[in-house]
Simulated assay, not measured.
Amino acid sequence: MITRREMTRVRRVCVAAWGGAAVSWELATPGPLVPSLATCAAFLLLATGCALHIRRGLLAELRRSQEIAGAAQRALLRPLPGRVDGVTLAAAQLSASRGAAVGGDLYEAVPTAHGIRVVIGDVRGHGLPALGAAAAVLGAFREAAYDEPSLGGVLLRMERALGRHVRDRARAEHPAVCAGEPESPAAEEFVTVLLLQIAPDDTLTALNCGHPWPYVIRPAPEPCAVRSGGSAPDPASRSSPRSPAGLAWLAGETLPPLGVVPLPPDPRPQACGELRPGETLFLHTDGAEDARDAAGRFFPLRSVLAEAPLTPARLVAGVHAALLRHTGGRLADDVALLVLRNDRH
């Protein structure tokens, strides 16, 4: 895809070439000064017209390329609905590749007959080169989440999809060596994955393959502001976003990342308690906690969450802005943020 920098460079080269040709012509052609200046001006006007024509064509091509890239990126990491089965959602993605809206991080949440099934993952590497593995894993989840009765079956389908992607990439990179099925693919890729299921009764089950566990954010008790005379609580106190009362990790056993070693034949999801009404889950990839500033200090994610409002959209926007401030807009790795709040009751 042609960038604006490349387009500007082409335009400058064209103008410089025409200007050089005009000056060389005038120096090599004897004659009066005034006609020579007129000829030189004509050359420069022609060069300007050609440069403007080239610029319009390159701008049109740039717009078409951006539209195609945007459509492809939205198809891979489509926007999440604001609410699914009584659970409010918000998400954001930050790519380490300049000009890209998505990278090697992935997330999705879908309502199924078994409850809301959620995935968040991180492909080895970052930016555009990791898109292939992210697309394979995310596509498998979107199909298996509806079909498989257990999270273990969903995870096995995702592992098989990643294996096919790695083998196909190995054959493409080394067609002479890997004419058949490669035993040790050269394209070694792995993906950290966290699978969650929020059942209709608010119980949580999870399968974690090398991914950071999410934070559970519990709201502070809402103060009962009673006016004189025993009137009802102030509605403004209920509508304002409250700060969290406490943070906890949704911890448990962790399997190796997908693609490192084969999964067990029957991965058993583990029970992780409940997501009670009003509680919030904050899911993230390791690019959030590993982000550093110019002095090498890590991003204080826990401190930011402790001071953030509980509204999912505001929580994501606040962490997003704090990350960009901390890193100066220069991310070393992709970052994905996903927030789910139980608003069923």
Rank of each mutant, 00 (worst) to 15 (best):
M1H: 08
R4K: 01
R5Q: 12
M7Q: 11
T8N: 11
V10T: 10
V15Y: 04
V15K: 06
A16V: 13
G19P: 03
A28D: 01
G31H: 07
L33V: 14
A38F: 12
A41L: 14
L44Q: 05
I54S: 10
L58W: 00
Q66H: 08
A69F: 02
R74L: 14
L77W: 01
G86R: 09
T88L: 14
A90M: 08
A92I: 01
A96N: 03
V102Q: 06
L106W: 06
A109I: 09
P111K: 14
P111F: 00
R117Y: 07
G121D: 01
R124M: 12
L128S: 12
P129F: 04
A130K: 08
A130L: 03
L131A: 08
L131H: 12
L138K: 03
Y146V: 07
L151H: 05
G153F: 00
E159A: 15
R160W: 03
V166W: 00
R167C: 08
R167W: 03
R171T: 06
R171P: 08
E173P: 03
P175R: 07
C178Y: 15
A179W: 11
P182F: 05
L195P: 00
L196D: 01
L196I: 08
D201P: 04
D202S: 13
H211P: 05
R218G: 12
A220S: 14
P223Y: 04
R227H: 14
P233F: 06
P233S: 05
P233M: 01
S239L: 15
P241W: 04
A245H: 07
A251G: 08
E253C: 07
T254P: 03
L263T: 02
L263P: 05
R276D: 05
L281P: 05
L283F: 07
H284K: 01
T285E: 01
E289D: 10
A291I: 00
F298A: 10
F299K: 01
L301D: 01
S303K: 11
E307P: 06
T311Q: 11
P312F: 00
R314T: 09
A322T: 02
A322H: 09
G329I: 05
V339C: 10
D343K: 02
D343T: 01
